[in-house]
């Protein structure tokens, strides 16, 4: 069988696990598209009217509606969307006339770059701070780092974004204030995105570490005279990592789709803003395309996280059935 070329036999369960998860993704995506289609169809606002703008004679609106196929029954329109989507055709945007798939493809790398760097920043800050806090529970360092971390989640992104621009672009003149030029333009948006996630990762790391530190085998290791930093780094951290990775994965998923405010403040041409602009234009094909795409990306990230567990903790592998 060709499978054997791809997968060693002892990985076979993992392979089945992935297939099963991908298969389960389909009904969710179908449901998402149906829900979005219904939302776009049954909320007020006429796409034809929006395209035509402020001065649109009723006949022009009617003509355009007919041309766009908006007068067809809901089911017919939805079925034709699904039919086309299966062949990879997500249709053309109502407002720009562009192919939705092409535009997502051209913008997604921007979103991915931003989310990846945002999550990296969050990890770089969150994991060490979380470990330090946990090893010195209730100390001054613990309290103050928790407060600082929490301030990160407590600040609305757009506000933080504007502040960072004022400091780093206007006053210091170090970094561009927005747009997408070279890689230096990604730093501020990534920092803005990352701080929120950093706080969440810090907290998760801390509580997860605290839990592990109290386990028997850690006490045993300590009792055996193993050096404290070895106990923490070798034994505790590895076991504490699993929930932390879940959170990192979730955060990454959210950053992929939830960076709308940051993207707006920095005029970052990502998929999130494309989606919001489209929602406001009642640009159904674009909304459907972006939402389904982001939902799929989110699920795939979660799947990747689950797979990663297997590598960290071999015991979990046995659960892939």
């Amino acid at each position: 069988m060709e499978y054997h070329l791809l997968l060693l036999s002892d990985r076979y369960p993992m392979y089945r696990f992935i297939l099963k998860r991908l298969f389960l993704l389909l009904p969710v995506l179908l449901g998402v598209s149906l829900l979005v289609f219904a939302i776009m169809s049954f909320t007020p606002g006429d796409p034809a009217q929006l395209i035509l703008g402020e001065s649109a004679p009723a006949e022009a609106v009617a003509e355009l509606r007919e041309e766009m196929g908006l007068n067809d029954p809901f089911i017919v329109r939805y079925a034709s969307f699904v039919g086309n989507a299966i062949t990879g055709d997500l249709g053309r945007s109502y407002s720009t006339g562009r192919e939705v798939f092409g535009e997502i493809a051209s913008r997604f790398p921007n979103t991915l770059t931003l989310a990846t760097l945002g999550v990296l920043i969050a990890i770089v800050i969150g994991v060490p701070v979380g470990i330090i806090s946990a090893t010195r529970q209730y100390s001054l360092i613990d309290s103050s780092s928790m407060v600082v971390a929490l301030l990160g989640v407590s600040m609305p992104n757009f506000w933080l974004g504007l502040m960072l621009i004022l400091v780093f672009s206007v006053n210091l003149g170090w970094l561009p204030s927005g747009g997408f030029s070279d890689w230096s333009s990604v730093i501020l948006p990534a920092l803005t995105l990352g701080t929120g996630s950093a706080a969440i990762i810090t907290r998760m790391t801390r509580s997860s570490m605290l839990e592990v530190i109290r386990q028997d085998y850690i006490r045993t290791a300590r009792a055996k005279g193993v050096a404290e930093n070895v106990v923490i780094n070798r034994h505790a951290l590895k076991n504490a990592l699993i929930p932390v990775i879940t959170v990192i994965g979730l955060q990454f998923g959210y950053l992929l789709g939830g960076a709308v405010l940051t993207e707006t403040v920095y005029s970052w041409p990502g998929v999130g803003r494309m989606m919001v602009d489209a929602i406001r234009q009642k640009d159904t094909p674009t909304v459907l395309g972006t939402v389904v795409f982001l939902a799929a990306a989110f699920s795939l990230v979660n799947l990747a996280v689950d797979i990663l567990y297997g590598f960290i903790d071999p015991r979990i592998k046995s659960q892939y059935k």
């Binding site: 504007l162 621009i165 672009s169 204030s177 927005g178 747009g179 403040v265 920095y266």
Partner: peptide, 11 residues
């Protein structure tokens, strides 16, 4: 495309 008015001035 710079959406926020404040940011156009900053740029």
């Amino acid at each position: 495309n710079i959406i926020e008015g404040t940011n156009r001035t900053i740029a």
